[in-house]
Every structure is written in C-alpha cells, then in structure tokens.
Design a protein around this nucleic acid. Structure first.
Lengths: 186, 186
DNA sequence: AATCTAATTCGACAGCTGTCAAATTAGATT
DNA sequence: AATCTAATTTGACAGCTGTCGAATTAGATT
C-alpha cells in the first residue's frame, strides 16, 4: 500500500470516529447489536440521522447489518477494529505519514517556492531559506570561474533585479569571493 | 476518571487528528523537529494556519515547543502518543464508551420518551416499545384488582385518549384479562 | 533606538457536516 | 390487495472549522 493511500485510509478513519454520535454508536454496538430505532432512542437522535451515521460506518466496514423482519440489525465488526488497534500511534508509524521524505523535501520545496520560470520571486528573508536559494544561484556559475563585476551583474539580472544584494549575499555565504574587480565562484 | 470524561477526551483526540493538515504535521514532527515556517512551506499552507494547528495540538500535549532566536521549534511529545496507543479500540474499551449501561437504559429511555407529565405522548407503533410502555401502564394498576370497563376507561383516559386501544393492548400482552364485564390486572 | 524577522492573533469567509422533517421504499401483516 | 412499520433517501439549513490576509507582538540584529 502506498504511503498516500495509507494516510488517506487512516485519515478517513479518524474523521469518521471523530464524531460524538458515531463514537457512541460504536460504543453501544460494542455491548450488543441494535436496530436503527433503538439506537435513535438511546442516543436521542432521529432515525434518519442514525441511518446516515450507520451508512458511513458501514462504508469503513466498522459495522455490519442483517435484516430481521422490518428491522435492520447492526452490529460491530470486531475484526476490522482489531486490525486498526495495533501500533497506530507508534512514532515510526506516524513518521510514514509525513507528506514526503522530510529531509530532502525541505530544500526542494523552498526552491520550488522561490523559483518561478527560472527567476527569483524574491530574496528570502530568513537565513535558512536564503542560504538554500543562494546555494542554488551559485550553482548556476561554473566553479573556479572568474567574472568581472559588470559581467556578473548582467548574469545575475536574469534572476533578480537587486543584483547588489545578490552579490553581497553570495560573498556572505562564501559561495563567491571578490579579488579586486573579479568575482570567483568557490 | 468518569466514563463521560473518558469519552470526551477520546473524542477530542479523534477530532483533532481527524484533520489532514494536523495529521501531516504530526507525521513531519515524527521524523524531526521543525519551526513554524518550515512546516508551512513543507505543507503548502500559510504560517497563521500552521500556527493555529500547532496551538490545537499543544493543547492536547501532543507537541511541545521551545524558543530558539526568532524561531519557535516544535517537536512531538512521544510519551503522550504512547499513552494513547494501548488498546484504544479493543471491544471492551469501546463498550465503556456507551452513553450509559446499554441494557437497562434502553427501557428507561423509551419510557422517558413516551411519558410526558405522566401521560402518553403516543402509543408506540413498534411491538418492542409498545410492550415496554404497556407494561408500565399495567403497573399503574394494583395486581389482582378487578375493574368494571367504565371505571377502567376513566382511569386510562388520564394516560391517553384512545382508551379502546389501550384496553386491547393490555389484553394482548396478557397484562390484564377480561371476564364478562370485569378487567383484572394479572 | 530603529529596523527586521518569525510567530501569533484577529477578522472574515467559504465549504463541510450533522441534524431533522418530509417523502419514499421495501417488507411484513392483515 | 390494502395497510402498516422500519428504514432509507432527499432536501434544506445552521453551526462548525480550516484557511488566509492584515495587523500585532516579542525578540533579535543593526
């Protein structure tokens, strides 16, 4: 089962039992099977409402139904519950629910956010993000290459209008160094 | 802890994690601690939204926070999760979530529903409920007591206008018997 | 001191969801 | 066949909640 599918299933399950009425229905059915009308009276709700909740619970296979005369008798599907009972909340299990692999995804997302059509939407304010973007920017230049300031400005302009800021940051992060009038990619 | 409190706590917990964003936040924090801004980018949500969710999670002690410079770093409170991990969905555990003790409560609720100010709101249509209500009605008469039909009618009228139906049902359920013109409570 | 940054709070809004009354359906009883 | 019963479906609505932009706050940096 894919991670996404697993997330969805778990999420769906929590959503469904994260409702007072449905949780109580499960509670009642845990001790004995019941008809719709009985549940309605016991919970002080209308029959349509109970019927609605039971339909939801049946979709997740948490309850089952049999017809008995005019009555529809519902009971708890204990096996389905037991299956969910094991280690749902262990930290390892939870980690698999992370949208993607947390570590690498972070840098990628930052870049994806700040880069539009190969240009910078802005220079990130926070150090952490700025470093990521600037590192990418530096990678657009060949290592060890020497460039006069005029040439560097011209190429930086393709990424962002504030070329002075970009130059300064590149040096700050030790991605480039300045020697007299020449900039060199480190 | 009272049953009610237990229900509430469990319900609250399910409600809180029954939300895609919050579940994903927990998933991310399961692998590493994160600042608000990081979570916002990783999940593609605004910082206010993330901040809001974190406040909710913190209320349940599912996450903790420390201040680091301008950043607020959140991490998973694993002990709180482990506490919840044990046998939440066992059938016995679930049964304790029933609104009250299922068995006796049923009859009481039916009576409470049909009796308003000592009178019957209606004669229940279903056999099961009708029997409960009629049994209560019969209990309003002394056992072994003999009553002429006129007297019985008079007393039944205090409970419901359709005295003929009540008389018939009382006999049906063998709660009273008719001998010539006399009704006797059995 | 003044500015800047990250986070939070506030206010507003759209979409979802739990609920019920009314209408309908499927089945049992007369 | 006609009636009655329990359940479901439909339609409507109120209340909740997740989301964001704007304003604010607390701290750090200059």
């Amino acid at each position: 089962m894919s991670v996404q599918a697993q997330t969805d299933q778990l999420l769906q399950f929590f959503k469904i039992i994260g409702n007072e009425s449905r949780l109580k229905v499960l509670g009642l059915l845990a001790s004995d099977e019941r008809s719709v009308g009985e549940l309605a009276i016991l919970l002080g709700l209308s029959e349509p409402t109970i019927s609605h909740h039971l339909a939801v619970l049946r979709e997740l296979d948490l309850v089952a139904m049999r017809v008995d005369g005019n009555n529809h008798i519902y009971w708890l599907n204990t096996t389905a519950l037991e299956a969910l009972n094991r280690n749902i909340f262990s930290q390892e299990q939870l980690a698999t629910l992370a949208p993607e692999e947390g570590g690498r995804a972070w840098e990628a997302k930052v870049l994806r956010y700040y880069l539009v059509d190969g240009r910078l939407r802005a220079i990130p304010a926070t150090q952490k993000k700025r470093q990521i973007v600037l590192r990418w920017l530096a990678d657009q230049f060949e290592k060890g290459q020497d460039l006069p300031e005029a040439e560097l400005n011209k190429r930086l302009k393709a990424f962002h209008p504030d070329v002075a800021a970009l130059r300064r940051h590149l040096v700050e992060f030790k991605l480039m160094e300045r020697k007299s009038n020449l900039y060199r990619r480190l």
